[in-house]
Design a protein around this nucleic acid. Structure first.
Lengths: 315, 315
DNA sequence: TTAGCAAATGAAACGGGTTCCATGGCAATA
DNA sequence: TATTGCCATGGAACCCGTTTCATTTGCTAA
């Protein structure tokens, strides 16, 4: 490999001058600049990025911790981040965590170790307060409402969209609503928000049998419906955590000759267009883009940004 | 930041011994090991990864060049790669290219610059021969059949599945088939393979008006159908490049009260389950996984691996 | 002519590890 | 007792840039 010292030797200039010429930092004569550039071209020299990183102390690499790539939630976030990275000078590295605490700690340590210039947590198993202790080593941004914890955050504000959805259901005369969630209520802020909105319009908490958690895919939606039927849960509406889940459930009812409940989906997926069901767009691409911008911003104040979700009633 | 020299100073041992102790490279007494470990813990020391990278010359980072994150093709590939990366010591960085040649060259240069230990090209705008010239700087794996070009490759072998599909269509009595593609025929090997299989069963090349390219999403499928109708193209079957595209097209016909043609999708998406249409599974997660394994393999022979696609006839 | 100053250049330190090689101590073998 | 050889250890080179600071060169103004 050609190094900057090779260029120095061949050109007769010192490595300092070469470095200055390459980085256009000034204090290089036109003669020197031309000569150096010619030799760089001749030897087909490119600076070693690792050496530059060591010298400058930054890698231009942002780590994005995500539990699961399959879920539409993360697919959309990823898209937003990649878009933002595209016209920045940073790269994005995806770090699958599967909600493993040890693994998440490992990634945090990587921040200390300077593997990444910053970290984005799209979801997490660790406590927010633990994440916050790593802020001294570099920017850490989370994609959820951090409440009272002081940590930069970008997240979708779901309350009003959820309320709009339940107002709609109430108006439609829905009485027995079932729910599917990605993660059960105690852990997940999202499911809490849903139940809060539900409570506001229906005044009594939902029966636990009307709730199935760990549902993410079409197939799991299908299975959830099966469970409702098996448990003899009578419902006239299903409030699903994604459009694909909603359509999976629908299929179960169809396959078994049962009446299909009304459906409300989320995430604005193709399947909701197909079935023409209402859905909720959480604009996760925007959340991803802004989280990326925040983590790469020069001055990371303890900012937080809420992106408003939209309830989309088709036709 | 605590450095290895701090540990050396505090422990009374030399940095060589510290390094050996940390890496368990032997030649360290039990006494020294214990003392060093204690001090490492006390000072909460973690080695700087960039310095290690510079010293060892590798970053444990694999770059994955992809034109588009949205397309199911890449979504599935990504999933496979992340799965493989998960239990390896490597990270994955996604490099969006939008089929920009300059950008792709830039990424290749990053390989020379040691930003990545290896590159995977899921698709590309550059000539394979140009990619191959970078093999001297590190492993480069492509996700397509490279033909006579000597470059490591992992790709789906589609011929037999396509043939099965057209055999099925022929048997069903399909006469006028339309096609959608992600990229038009001259560029894309995939579309060439489709047309080859079609020709085998239908003996005459398809009418150009029956082909629409640059179709990837539900909406673009909808638009493609519109174009067929506008061009007065009569079809009894649509051979789409993804299930979502097929369902988008279907919707157009429905929306306009037109008879819906028979559909064949690809990529085994949720929408094909929903509509119960035949599809083709290209097992792109496997392709992604194997590509990742290949690029991180110790000895990168000029290997190639073909993963067989499956025609899936539902029910 | 010379002081004064800016521009151009280079030596060396620095970032923080890994690793080669030399050295010293000590036990087993001849 | 002298030799051999292994183990533990440290010094220093190495990876390859950036940056600080000192020095030299060249020009302008007095």
């Amino acid at each position: 490999m050609t190094t900057i010292r090779d260029i120095a030797e061949k050109s007769g200039y010192s490595i300092s001058t070469i470095s200055r010429a390459l980085n256009h930092s000034g204090y290089v004569s036109a003669t020197a600049q031309a000569k150096i550039e010619a030799i760089v071209k001749e030897l087909n020299y490119v600076p070693n990025a690792i050496a530059q990183d060591l010298s400058t102390g930054s890698t231009h690499n942002i780590g994005v911790v995500l539990p699961d790539v399959n879920h539409p939630f993360y697919t959309q976030l990823i898209k937003g981040m990649l878009d933002a990275a595209f016209d920045s000078e940073y790269h994005v590295t995806f770090l699958p965590s599967a909600y493993d605490q040890e693994l998440e700690r490992h990634y945090l340590e990587q921040l200390r170790r300077k593997v990444y210039d910053g970290l984005i947590f799209t979801s997490r198993a660790l406590a927010l307060s633990e994440l916050a202790t790593y802020l001294q080593f570099g920017p850490v941004v989370v994609c959820e409402d951090p409440g009272s914890i002081k940590i930069p955050a970008v997240f979708s504000y779901r309350e009003s969209a959820y309320q709009a959805a339940f107002a709609y259901l109430k108006k439609k005369g829905a009485r027995h609503i079932a729910f599917t969630f990605s993660r059960p209520e105690p852990i997940s802020a999202t499911s809490k928000a849903v139940m809060r909105a539900y409570l506001k319009y229906y005044c009594v908490p939902a029966d636990q049998r009307n709730i199935v958690a760990y549902v993410n895919t079409y197939q799991e939606g299908y299975d959830a419906a099966q469970q409702f039927v098996k448990d003899n849960v009578m419902i006239d509406y299903l409030f699903a955590n994604s459009d694909d889940v909603a359509t999976g459930a629908r299929q179960y009812y169809l396959d078994h000759g049962l009446p299909v409940p009304g459906l409300v989906g989320q995430e604005y997926q193709v399947s909701s267009m197909l079935l023409n069901i209402p859905t909720i767009d959480h604009h996760l691409d925007v959340v991803g883009r802004e989280a990326f911008r925040m983590v790469t911003a020069q001055h990371l104040a303890t900012t937080r940004l809420a992106v408003q979700s939209d309830f989309i009633l088709r036709q």
